[in-house]
Write a protein that binds this DNA or RNA. Sequence first.
DNA 1: TTGTTAAACGGAACAAGGTTCCGTATCGTA
DNA 2: TACGATACGGAACCTTGTTCCGTTTAACAA
Lengths: 187, 187
Amino acid sequence: MTEKPRKRADAQRNELSLLDAAAATFVAAGVDAPVRDIAAKAGVGVGTIYRHFPTRADLIVAVYRHQVEACAEAGPALLAANTSPHAALAQWIDLFVDFLVTKHGLAGALRSDNAAFQTLHAYFLDRLVPVCGQLLDAAVAAGEIRDDLQPITLMRGVGNLCIGAENNPDYDARRLVDLLITGLRLK
Amino acid sequence: MTEKPRKRADAQRNELSLLDAAAATFVAAGVDAPVRDIAAKAGVGVGTIYRHFPTRADLIVAVYRHQVEACAEAGPALLAANTSPHAALAQWIDLFVDFLVTKHGLAGALRSDNAAFQTLHAYFLDRLVPVCGQLLDAAVAAGEIRDDLQPITLMRGVGNLCIGAENNPDYDARRLVDLLITGLRLK
DNA sequence: TTGTTAAACGGAACAAGGTTCCGTATCGTA
DNA sequence: TACGATACGGAACCTTGTTCCGTTTAACAA
């Protein structure tokens, strides 16, 4: 039962190089950076990228997995630390916005209907929507907000608002997200 | 002074065909449809497209100009027809959302930082931001909403919320825009 | 009508990026 | 050390945007 087809040493090495190179390239040129650039920076051929990460989304997910996990785990923690669930929700959304606006092009990729980004989309949604739902439910239960907004709609809306938010002087995504969360309140 | 370098008959004809073909193609395949497809549908070579419409944005603007103008003109009309400027604002935004969500891919194009879409961006902003500003000012003057939101930020936010809204069952852009406008209210 | 010319046309050619494929190199093991 | 499986590299191919130039055609004057 315990399969153990351990990967070859060179394959493990390359996977690491690729992750490093991708992280660096994403910072410098955004998550849409050419595959060839990433391969070159990692010192491998393009074939090697596709072997390890069949789609760009797989690579992006691998690079940001830790941060997404951290965000997901912050949800319950914030709920526990705040007396007002609405405040916890606002803080959590803020965390999510922080994450998105510092990853050049990520919000846009999340939105893309390109098949290659399907995995990315699915991962973010699977991991974060339940957390968002928890916060939303708590706020509804506390009578702080309206009860007719689906977690997935909120997540998508916030994601959309973050598109193109990086270093754009006359577009304040955080501000808009804040208005959205405010609009959620009853009364 | 009155220059009259009238265009050649074939050029005028082709421009019309192109506009028709583009409109049809945009409906069927979105505003990102391949240039070659549009050229083929119009029965002209790709060179002819570029001669008439140097960038894709020029073509998009030409196709949707009438509708954008109509939207712009609806602003003052709604203000005059409503006793509450906030209600007028909500209705106007609704018109804008209607326009965007029925044009597959347009909201995304509006957001693109690709140089080719610069003109599109500029046209929409030039034409609609002042109208939005007028509505916003009136609502502020009536004491209905907070006074610290720039028209351009609002327009961009609404545009962003409309990205990917076409036939997507679990994403209700209109709903989110509504929350945003609600969040604007004082109290 | 016909000749001349500037305007406009078509589409081949080129560039850029994604993706596939297969001959070659390397690893792990007997 | 030899051998099979695994992984690698990068050329080649596809799609889409964009440019360029030889050819066609509309406009107009003689």
